[in-house]
């Protein structure tokens, strides 16, 4: 079937089998390999992308189910060489080691900050409870989200 998806604001079209999972459509068709394909069982969160702004696990969603919806991947965060504050926070606070979980962590926490600009540490931990980091870097991930929240708040005050 012909599936046309809007990914990061661009229309991407391809003839695929209905059984193609969103994660593979994203990685294969526009070649956006930032979205990682991890456990394949909706446990690890490496494949999280945003659908109409809501984080979802792309390994457990059919590409065909996303027709008519806006998909955003980790590649959408950086704009014209400017990192999103959440990316900058991960950089500043050393919130990644091997980096495999990072795309899902970034999209999950970006969505958190969009909903809740000043989350508590507990709210951050709850938000990422569906995202597994096997380098055991949760402490720094929480610190990175806090960094991003604080810097976004400061930026908002400036304008």
């Amino acid at each position: 079937m012909q599936v046309t998806l809007t990914i990061n604001g661009r229309e991407v079209s391809r003839d695929v089998e209905p059984r193609q999972l969103l994660v593979h459509f994203i990685r294969d068709t526009p070649g956006l390999t930032g979205t990682h394909w991890g456990c394949d069982t909706s446990n690890c969160g490496a494949c999280v992308v945003l659908m109409d702004g809501t984080p979802i696990k792309s390994c457990t969603t059919l590409a065909a189910m996303c027709v008519g919806h806006e998909i955003a991947t980790v590649e959408s965060l950086e704009v014209d060489g400017e990192l999103d504050p959440i990316q900058q926070g991960f950089h500043e606070m050393h919130a990644l080691h091997c980096g495999f979980c990072t795309p899902g962590m970034l999209m999950t926490t970006r969505a958190l900050l969009n909903e809740n600009p000043r989350p508590t540490d507990q709210e951050i931990r709850t938000a990422i409870s569906g995202a597994i980091c096997r380098c055991t870097g949760y402490q720094n991930i929480v610190a990175a989200v806090r960094w991003a929240a604080e810097h976004e708040a400061a930026f908002q005050q400036e304008i």
Binding site: I56, T60, A131
Partner: peptide, 9 residues
């Protein structure tokens, strides 16, 4: 039940 991302769907 599961985690917040799964609960979105």
């Amino acid at each position: 039940i599961a985690d917040p991302v799964v609960r979105n769907r």
